[in-house]
Design a protein around this nucleic acid. Structure first.
Lengths: 212, 212
DNA sequence: TTATAAAAGGGTATTTTTCCCGTTTTTTTG
DNA sequence: CAAAAAAACGGGAAAAATACCCTTTTATAA
């Protein structure tokens, strides 16, 4: 019996996916969470460590990327599978970088899901049909971001900047001085060739540096 | 012989679609443009008025919605057909409102395209398979926007607000006083429940009130 | 280990944004 | 048409964003 964990903010999907996994026979859902924060609490509290963790990319509070990074850092034995509706280039790379060994679209056929899970359990990884995920474009997008040379802190700041918060609130949230994030802002303005926070956010969204 | 115009920013698609239409036999492409502005110039310059105009929704410079509105106002005789990759609810409504008599997805089968064009030419309209376009969801999305009650001026302002410009520049662009657009801003802040321009832009993008 | 670079933080002036107070003009409606 | 409502516009103050100046801390390489 292979134990599974699921993190997805859509209750309906979360539960129905659980039923489907159960119907496969040799899978058992041991932890369900609505977002990363929720998952952290439940794993710590219930002290369960599933064999495979299915992680939705888009979740409130703590998204799939952050969740995957945290799991990789704290529970490296868990095999992570990213679940997503869209196959936006950069997200796939991010999730793989964050430690996921597979990337599945939510419209994947149940048979393929079962096949994927079996392969992940035995081989440790799974490659969806290569035609679906265009690796050439993937690499190009990644390269573009490397050229922009945006580091982790800046990327994190970018996420907060793309919100209704003031910089003061962002600074508090990031537990840093206003001057410091001021520096991130200036650096990003240059890198993305913009002169206002609005321009920054729009460019960030266009370049898929942030998920809306 | 039915004359056709095509506006699409993807050169490859533009040209190959032209070939396909020619292969249908009784269609002739008389004007090709890469965006709305381009089309305006070409129509004025060459003085050609096609029977049917195929308009891509997403184009730079001047998008499909604006193009359709302009054509409806200036060349009401042309039958407009919206072409799009995505079938995002609000866009369909917008294009229909802008005067399009049909909405076709770019992955439509050539046979269906031909059938659609023939119907449009004879009946003046064409309804794609109803199952593809979920009218219930369409109406719900439209209703949501009606509830928000965003008028044309505000919508136009929103487009300019979602840019790297300052309000002063926006006011100049809209040929209005800064105070006036200040009023639009305040109204939109309330309607979209935000407290900053960044929040406004993000909500506008989320609700598909602006095209990025 | 020290020299050097990079990151973080501080202060402040300027510009932009946001919000408040109004008046005038236009549109709608009875 | 006149009254009422809505839109356009104006001044100015407070807050936020932006652009500089700078020092301190941390990381990194010679």
């Amino acid at each position: 019996m292979i134990t599974i964990g699921i993190a997805d903010d859509h209750q309906l999907f979360l539960k129905s996916l659980g039923l489907m996994l159960a119907s496969f026979g040799n899978y058992k859902v041991v932890v369900e969470a609505l977002n990363g924060k929720d998952l952290q609490e439940k794993i710590k509290q219930k002290n369960v460590v599933p064999d495979i963790m299915l992680i939705d990319v888009n979740m409130p509070q703590m998204n799939g990327y952050e969740t995957a990074k945290w799991l990789t850092a704290n529970y490296p034995a868990i095999k992570l599978v990213a679940l997503s509706m869209n196959d936006s280039d950069h997200i796939i790379i991010d999730m793989i970088k964050a430690g996921c060994c597979a990337y599945l679209l939510k419209d994947t056929h149940p048979n393929e899901l079962e096949k994927a899970l079996n392969e992940i359990d035995t081989k440790g990884y799974y490659n969806g049909d290569a035609s679906n995920i265009n690796y050439r474009r993937l690499m190009k997008a990644e390269q573009e971001r490397d050229i922009l040379n945006i580091n982790e802190k800046e990327k994190q700041f970018l996420k907060y900047a793309c919100s209704d918060m003031t910089y003061k609130q962002v600074a508090a949230e990031m537990k840093m001085s206003e001057r410091t994030i001021d520096g991130y802002r200036e650096a990003l303005f240059q890198k993305l060739k913009v002169q206002s926070r609005v321009g920054l956010c729009l460019e960030a969204i266009r370049k898929n540096l942030v998920t809306l």
